[in-house]
Nucleic acid binder design. Sequence first.
DNA 1: CCATTAACTGAACATTGTTTAGTATTAGCA
DNA 2: TGCTAATACTAAACAATGTTCAGTTAATGG
Lengths: 202, 202
Amino acid sequence: MPRRGDHSKEELKNLILDAAEALVAEHGAAGLSARAIAKQIGYAAGTIYLNFANLDEVILHVNARTLDRMYAAIEPAASGRAGPVTRLKRAARAYVEFARANPSLWRLCFEHRLPPGSDSPDWLDRRIEGLVSLIVEPVREVTQSTGRALETTAQTLFSGVHGICMLTLTNKLDVVGKQGTEQLTDALISNYIRGVTSAHSE
Amino acid sequence: MPRRGDHSKEELKNLILDAAEALVAEHGAAGLSARAIAKQIGYAAGTIYLNFANLDEVILHVNARTLDRMYAAIEPAASGRAGPVTRLKRAARAYVEFARANPSLWRLCFEHRLPPGSDSPDWLDRRIEGLVSLIVEPVREVTQSTGRALETTAQTLFSGVHGICMLTLTNKLDVVGKQGTEQLTDALISNYIRGVTSAHSE
DNA sequence: CCATTAACTGAACATTGTTTAGTATTAGCA
DNA sequence: TGCTAATACTAAACAATGTTCAGTTAATGG
């Protein structure tokens, strides 16, 4: 049934997402527009709306892809055979590295505002939880905690690294370079972990 | 020389910023438009461009105001006569509380993207540094550190609280309510500080 | 009272997201 | 093979956006 290039529904969706991703990566979030996507894939702008409800939905799917790539980038670091603290630090570095390599896509994940009233779909939120879950195991190993305390520690560390990443990448802190950021994430992890374990043995 | 309502240049600028602030606070960042501002102050849209180069500049000034209000909201908590750790926790709570009370304005401060190439002006960045500087004193008291180490700790704690605030306020974490967020910030501060001090006495 | 200057407007332009009437192509069936 | 129904797709339209600017109005200064 397709006419232009024999693209199945699924292929066309992926073409749209590919184009959207490339546009954001190259020209920032502002470079994303229905017409720009259409031009890049050789379709008319209206075609996008046959596959997605609106541009917000396109962005949400782009974000899902980005989060999946983030997961893949962090997973090896978090689950190596090194000690738990080392794995946590490596995971944080992988996170920062990914954000530095994909600044626009990374920011789109966390800065995209959808219209008031509606909030992000479950399949997206679950991907962020998936990222947090990556560090639960090393945290458990090193803190010997379980249940709610374990989850709290993992969430706190993740948020902390995320905040450091956010503020340093957007130059809102007086910190420059990769090692500047890593100094902060390393400090966060070592001190927090030491704090937890020393409270334990007290 | 003014014609409409005898507004001096400075008054008119403030009128514009007042209107912009109100629009963002009520209808979110998407509610901000040149025509909406103009309508609210009884001027034509073009008048805004006689006072600001473009809407981005208006937003930057709104953010400056918001950051000033944040400073005023946090300062008392950070500089009371309580112990340093208590002051840090109170400062974090004040930060979270402000963000919860002004979600759209708070997000605008940290999520606004200006066109690629240009970065935010010094007078704005300095206001964020001002926020960080609020916790330097209590951090110094409790960690006995100075210089670069002191600054690193302050930046790390600030970023950490910021990250927690960001992810919990935007519902990207499986954490709900004010006490949920405060549990994370409290954990961050107590454990991090304990980590620093216990490393010291080791 | 007139001329100059500045404030201000209204309309215009390009670009955005989104909708829709209409066209073209294919699939299924006779 | 040829007819019909369904679907993929486009082009054009709409409203709203940021921004500019020629022209108008009002106040100032001489």
